[in-house]
Design a protein around this nucleic acid. Sequence first.
DNA 1: GTGCGAATCTGCAAACCGTGCGAACTAGCC
DNA 2: GGCTAGTTCGCACGGTTTGCAGATTCGCAC
Lengths: 152, 152
Amino acid sequence: MRRPDELTRAFRAQGLKITPQRQLLFTLLHDNETHPTAEALYTVAHAQMPGISRRTVYQTLTDLVSMGELSSLAVGGGATRFDPNTAAHHHALCDECGALLDIYVDDLQFRAQGLEGFAASGATIVFNGRCATCVPNDLPNNPVINNKEHQQ
Amino acid sequence: MRRPDELTRAFRAQGLKITPQRQLLFTLLHDNETHPTAEALYTVAHAQMPGISRRTVYQTLTDLVSMGELSSLAVGGGATRFDPNTAAHHHALCDECGALLDIYVDDLQFRAQGLEGFAASGATIVFNGRCATCVPNDLPNNPVINNKEHQQ
DNA sequence: GTGCGAATCTGCAAACCGTGCGAACTAGCC
DNA sequence: GGCTAGTTCGCACGGTTTGCAGATTCGCAC
């Protein structure tokens, strides 16, 4: 997702208006790596701008997603999470604390059975496990997937 | 997920009772490749057994998931979908009709950045695109991912 | 600066998905 | 048949998200 001032220009260029509510959300989302839910954003936004409504937060998030500035993630656990990182990447979800990390995957190769006739436009990978904060210290990291050359 | 008669034995072996409602759901789920939602299952179940309640369907699905006979999938689009196929596999989601296909992935190799310190216990891959029914006939299949040797 | 029109915001209601709970029921065992 | 623990049912409720209508405000033209 672009910087708040770039987004402001982009919105204006599309005939969309810039409001204080939108600007606040641009700021809260920019460089936000926590993959917040709409509710979490509303909580922070409301603390800074008590008048803002939940409805506006949802609306703005929807707008940003449809403009391609934000992506929405359904990773289970109820609420949709939002990701301002629009570069091609994947995610790791901590089963314990729910943290979601950005994972960059390179040199992906595999054989697939069942994709015949399916016109795939992309793929999303979600790793499950425990994040560094939640993994017990006496256990080795990545018992299933080591971190140099991965294989499944 | 095992056959209805095997599940019946497994339930009894755990001290769980076998009810007509459960047997009906065992049957509806067995070999069901549509990845139905709880609501979809309720609709079919209710047609065959008008007295059955939504609550019972949810309860039975939860039980089967916790017994490992069923897996639940959050693939966006609201309701959780259920998959009686408990073999290790992945999914392809049709953006157009919402169909979910089972995909078997072999020889998966990749390099990942960001997984350092994350104790991954597994990974799920969801392919997006259009299923054979929804893809326009004049377009080549799998414009992004071809089907012999995949790369991203 | 003023006025106008369209976009936006707000707050409420409601839909959707799923769970908690208590009363009624029943499968399975004696 | 009778008992008991497990199950079902139906309702209420919580969390998430969307629809709607009226009030407000942005952005532009003058």
